[in-house]
Design a protein around this nucleic acid. Sequence first.
DNA 1: TACAATTAATTTGTATACAAATTAATTTAA
DNA 2: TTAAATTAATTTGTATACAAATTAATTGTA
Lengths: 146, 146
Amino acid sequence: MKKDVLKLENQICFPIYLCSKEIIRKYTPWLKELDLTYTQYIVMMYFWEKEKSNVKEIGNTLLLDSSTLTPLLKKLESKGYITRDRSKVDERNLEVMITDKGKKLKAKALSIPEKMGKCIDLSEEEATALYKLMYKILMNVERNDG
Amino acid sequence: MKKDVLKLENQICFPIYLCSKEIIRKYTPWLKELDLTYTQYIVMMYFWEKEKSNVKEIGNTLLLDSSTLTPLLKKLESKGYITRDRSKVDERNLEVMITDKGKKLKAKALSIPEKMGKCIDLSEEEATALYKLMYKILMNVERNDG
DNA sequence: TACAATTAATTTGTATACAAATTAATTTAA
DNA sequence: TTAAATTAATTTGTATACAAATTAATTGTA
């Protein structure tokens, strides 16, 4: 009896997809207190490390299409967390910069990683192994295409 | 110097989110040949195992909200892969059933898991470890809520 | 047995996601 | 030096996702 390769149970991608969704669902109420969605939170984390950037750079780091970022960044701008201005050097580029309000938001987010950590509840070794596997897959998947 | 818990690099959820997205992106062109999206593919895999179901059952298995499934199932119906009919026993339930055309689609999908496996490119041990970790997280995250 | 509570699916509203087409600015090359 | 090619961001179109509200059917109970 040959193994059914299309059985859901035999898929490795399916649980990754589920995990991603469930984790984001878990974040949602915590992020709601900061008036952020998960993707907006990722973008804010990016700006807590890097004061100034542009759409292309953000997209390269977060693996988000510019067409996803454009409305998202407008949203963050409307909340006062970032500014959006065309570069004077090259007007094709949009300079995106975090505001003071955006920087202050970080303090409110400080408790979230620990809460999520408790929720995920992996040992140090498990988390490290998972981390490595995820980046290995990312590397491999990206190997051949753009 | 204390570790910055909000650094993107220190997040375990972020690479899971990236992996999920990148894997789905990788599936897309292969599934396009079957006229399926990734979520539609998941639902079809479900029906390749279970001929008949309903919205609630599908949602419980695939962790998809009924409001996501309603339009998706209508789409699969319009492609002729499933049928949708109110149960005569309890008209609240929608009986969803795979068609012959839907069953035949499986043959065309048979090569996809191997292609994706090559793309992910993990050893047997790595894949097993990852699989276990994903289901552990799913279990843990679901522990407290509904 | 009516009426309240529950249940299943749908609708509505908001926010991703990404491919493809478009726009506008800059660079390359004939 | 100007037309073609490239580049960055936006717009458009389609498809998830899920919470909250709604609708319709069934069940529980006073």
